Amino acid sequence: MTALPLVPATADLTIHRLSARPVLVPLALPLVTAGGAVDKAPLVLVDLETEEGVTGCAYLFTYTPRALAATVRQVEELTPLIAGQRVAPLALSERLAAAFRLLGRPGLVGMALAGLDMAAWDALAKAQGLPLYRLLGAEARRLPAYNSKGLGMIGAQMAAEEARSLLAEGFNAVKLRLGYPTRAQDLEVAEAVRTAIGPKPRLFVDFNQTLTLAEAKHRVPPLEAFDLEWVEEPLPWDDYRGHGALAAETSLPIQLGENCWGAGDFAKAFDAGLDAVFMPDAMKIGGVTAWLQTAGLAAAYGVQLSSHLYPEISSHLLAATPTAHWLEYVDWAAPILAEPFSVTDGLAGPSEAPGSGIAWDEAAAKRFAADI
């Protein structure tokens, strides 16, 4: 691991600049969903450089390589707004929210602001010589993790084989993507996977926003036979009313949150009747600062909070979440990290390294650099 600069624990950090670089990382296990196929992870590596020599790190997942160039530019264009300011994430969040109020935060602006926020918290923790969860006042927790890097729409036989393989990597839970052309196909695949893994491992289902409300009411209740942990985003993510109506039709928890922008969207979901589970995405929710706001609301309402992607920083955030539930595991950033995230016996905890545990394997970052 790269040695950190020796900085007094009480030192203030001053922002020098925010830099970004695109990488395109091949997936060891390509993922096919009803919304499209993913065989490479388009990531933007964010570095918050300080005058004191401490660099905070974070990465952003842009979903499509077409968004890499725009995301890099949006991140780097934040530098004139923050250069010379203290690394104070709460204050930075307030000032930048005001700067972008008329434009609005969802989209590339929100992604860039989240990258800055995560990198700022990482820098602060590194300067203090603390893992992020300790800077947040939490204790380390080993939480149950589910393997989400595969089980795309590959048919019943292949899904059954892949489910067994994913559990063999040290997990007790896996996520299955559904949304086949017919309900019969969905049920066939779900039955094949449940039969292959047996009754004990937990099984999650994700429809990736592909159904109408009428179709969801037709397809979801029969899935109760397979003892699912939850059904994720059967409808477009912001159809809170529809998800609430569906939740009233089934005993299965209806999960959403990965596409929600900020704590306000959590409140909308709760008000619509989705009062059991919620899964923020560390980037879209707004980084560490907005995650903590969302976690406070979830604790007040008694809603269980799980993570979406970003297992490295999410493990720290879940440690500071009173109603922490599940950690989603993918290995998409592992090839460009100096110390990839790991899961043992189905459980995962935060890194004990200073910061969020994110440091670049520079040779790999150069090898996977994207041409934009």
Results as ranks from 00 to 15, higher is better:
Thr50Ala: 11
Ile197Arg: 04
Ala369Gly: 08
Ala41Asn: 02
Ala67Gln: 06
Leu116Gln: 04
Ala319Tyr: 03
Ala370His: 05
Trp121Gln: 14
Gly129Gln: 09
Asp275Leu: 03
Gly257Arg: 07
Phe341Leu: 09
Ala300His: 03
Thr79Ile: 15
Ala20Val: 15
Pro234Tyr: 02
Met111Gly: 11
Ala159Asn: 03
Arg101Trp: 12
Glu229His: 10
Glu188Val: 13
Pro26Val: 13
Ala140Arg: 14
Pro22Cys: 14
Glu161Ala: 09
Asp39His: 09
Glu233Asn: 03
Leu13Met: 08
Arg86Met: 10
Tyr329Ile: 08
Asp47Met: 08
Pro322Ala: 05
Leu102Arg: 12
Glu162Gln: 10
Ala276Cys: 07
Ala353Arg: 14
Tyr63Ala: 13
Arg241Thr: 15
Met158Thr: 14
Gly104Ile: 12
Leu27Phe: 10
Ala98Pro: 04
Ala290Glu: 13
Leu92Phe: 04
Arg101Ala: 15
Thr2Ser: 08
Leu274Cys: 01
Leu151His: 00
Ala334His: 11
Ser165Asn: 05
Ala276Tyr: 12
Lys366Trp: 11
Ser356Asp: 05
Glu229Met: 14
Val189Ile: 04
Arg73Asp: 14
Phe278Pro: 02
Ala225Cys: 11
Leu92Gly: 09
Val231Gly: 00
Val72Thr: 15
Leu347Thr: 11
Leu274Gln: 00
Ala184Tyr: 11
Tyr180Cys: 03
